[in-house]
Simulated scan of single mutants.
Amino acid sequence: MSLLFEEIDSQASPLGEICLRRRRIPALGERDIYEVKLGDEFLMSSMFVEAEEALATLGLATVEGEDLRVVVGGLGLGYTAVAALRDARIAELLVVDALETVIGWHRDELVPLGKILNADPRNRYVHGSFFNLATQPNSGFDPDSAEKKFDAILLDIDHSPSEYLHAANAGFYSSEKLSLMAAQLKPAGVFAMWSQNLPEESFEALLGTVFAEVNSHVISFYNPFLGGESTNSVYVCVKGAP
């Protein structure tokens, strides 16, 4: 094992081999970089978290009221969840992830933000498929409270609305399935979603068939590998009155 690279954990999962790694890049100084890989595919790096945090801040900025109940779909390295918990209005945060291994990394504090999430009593991990729970409004996201309604649902799982972590996820991106998810939002509730790509007009139009208001935000951040700016996007949608 090099001092510049460590594989912290690697386990089989229903989606393939998933591993957590830590590395240092000398040109970037004394900074530990955490990475998650699924098979040969990079899922996340702690080098680039601006858009994951913006998913929480932009989504919650659109929500009105206090004592907010919020769902985060996709735990990753925890950046969206931790950014959401910075909002003092949150009373309850459910973080849904299909991979028990990823939840275990946080519970065992193998990743830096696990300690923050574990220490916050508002946070609760839910092991399950976001896409299955999202489209079953009679049971819903909370295994302890069927049909619970939420103020916001923040989604960061697929690479984009047209590039999926797993082919089975494609069916979620339809008016029918998005409407089932929206049924779990309170009136004027917010659905926000991260994408690695610039906003897609076809997806904005699809969201417009379900939500009363759809806005897209481009998030720019410095990418040292490119020596310039990279971009992701965040879609923020507001549910209409019943």
Score class of each variant (00 low, 15 high):
Glu64Gly: 12
Gly65Asn: 10
Glu66Cys: 06
Glu66Lys: 13
Val70Leu: 04
Leu75Asn: 03
Leu75Ala: 07
Gly76His: 05
Thr80Leu: 04
Ala81Pro: 09
Val82Gln: 00
Val82Glu: 13
Val82Ser: 03
Ala83Asn: 02
Ala84Phe: 03
Ala88Thr: 14
Arg89Phe: 08
Arg89Met: 08
Ala91Asn: 11
Leu93Ala: 08
Val95Ile: 13
Glu100Cys: 09
Glu100Thr: 14
Val102Arg: 07
Ile103Phe: 01
Ile103His: 11
Gly104Met: 08
Arg107Tyr: 08
Pro112Gln: 05
Gly114Tyr: 06
Gly114Cys: 00
Ile116Pro: 01
Ile116Cys: 01
Leu117Gln: 00
Ala119Lys: 14
Asp120Arg: 12
Asp120Pro: 00
Pro121Val: 09
Asn123Pro: 11
Gly128Pro: 09
Gly128Leu: 00
Phe130His: 00
Asn132Met: 04
Leu133Phe: 08
Leu133Tyr: 03
Leu133Val: 10
Gln136Pro: 06
Ser139Leu: 13
Phe141Glu: 08
Phe141Arg: 06
Asp142Glu: 09
Pro143Lys: 04
Pro143Ile: 08
Ser145Gly: 09
Lys148Tyr: 06
Leu154Asn: 06
Leu155Lys: 01
Leu155Ala: 10
Asp156Ile: 11
Asp156Met: 05
Ile157Trp: 01
Ile157Ala: 05
His159Val: 14
His159Arg: 12
Glu163Ser: 14
Leu165Asn: 08
Ala167Gln: 14
Ala168Phe: 11
Ser174Leu: 01
Ser179Tyr: 06
Met181Glu: 05
Ala182Phe: 03
Ala188Ser: 14
Gly189Met: 12
Val190Cys: 04
Phe191Asp: 02
Ala192Ser: 15
Ala192Trp: 05
Met193Arg: 11
Ser195Gln: 07
Gln196Ser: 15
Asn197Asp: 15
